[in-house]
Amino acid sequence: MPDFIELDRLEKVFTVRRRAGRLRRERREVRAVDGISCTVARGEMVGYIGPNGAGKSTTVKMLTGILTPSGGRLRVAGIDPATDRTRLARRMGVVFGQRTTLWWDLPLRDSYALMRRLYRIEPARYRVNLERCVDLLDLGALLDVPVRQLSLGQRMRGDIAAALLHDPEVLYLDEPTIGLDVVSKAKVRGFLRDVNAERGTTVLLTTHDLTDVEQLCDRVVVIDRGRLVYDGGLAGLRAAGGGERTLVVDLAREAPPVEVPGARFVRSEGPRQWLALPAGASAAPVVAALAARYPLADLSVREPDIEEVIARVYASGGVPAPTAAPR
């Protein structure tokens, strides 16, 4: 079976005109997406991450047919998005974190009714899908509220439902949890997991919030300055970034820096001390050694901060992507 999404040396070059001096204008080429190749199988859930201006939204815009690529090849479900935009539109759902597809002045319900007719969704299927979304995203009380009166989190949930009413095969989410409170975030993540598991919907998620990725995606694609710098599992990314795990030790009383083999002292604050462990190393022997030598009150292990890991990946100019993608 061919891959569901195929990017082959995909490129997008913008010409930027900049005011240089009073009258002169400078033309400069910006390679927003600079030869990205990767594939996504049907039913995968992929986190697409990178710093601001890395080319994330440009890629999503090409995938959805908003922008025409300047080079390379792109297929989604065998369709070229640039030439067959409206045909593909029926099979995909898009949620732009900052821009709503909902009708500002009208109740949420009216926006959904319009979606039903624009996408020609069969009434029975529409009822089922709407009910499901309303149920899982907790929209029941909001259906008759004009969209402008919804909070950001409520509106985002409303937008996600709107993108799923027509049973899209693929769902693109651009920063879906930006600005949401903790409860809304959890709700949105849980819902996305369900949709992916039950419907086999392929999900591509661009985000700044790495917790989204950690909780949802088995696979991460990291890009920087338009180029792919990592493609693989989260664990692999951690190892690749060479991040260290942190052991937080609460001693019974204040003490000089502890010394145990296999760990390095980082800092202390009163009775609490921070130790660093190399990524991938087991914490058990260190904990055992600590317990033997010091009076311990409490202890916890922190995984390397993924943001830090990614920063390190960027700094090192990328790592060779593992050839075998997870799953």
Binding site: T64, R85, R87, A89, F96, R99, T100, T101, L118
Partner: peptide, 14 residues
Amino acid sequence: RDGTLDVLLVRPVP
């Protein structure tokens, strides 16, 4: 300017 045209571009109608 505000980018909301993109929202219209991903719908299956002209």
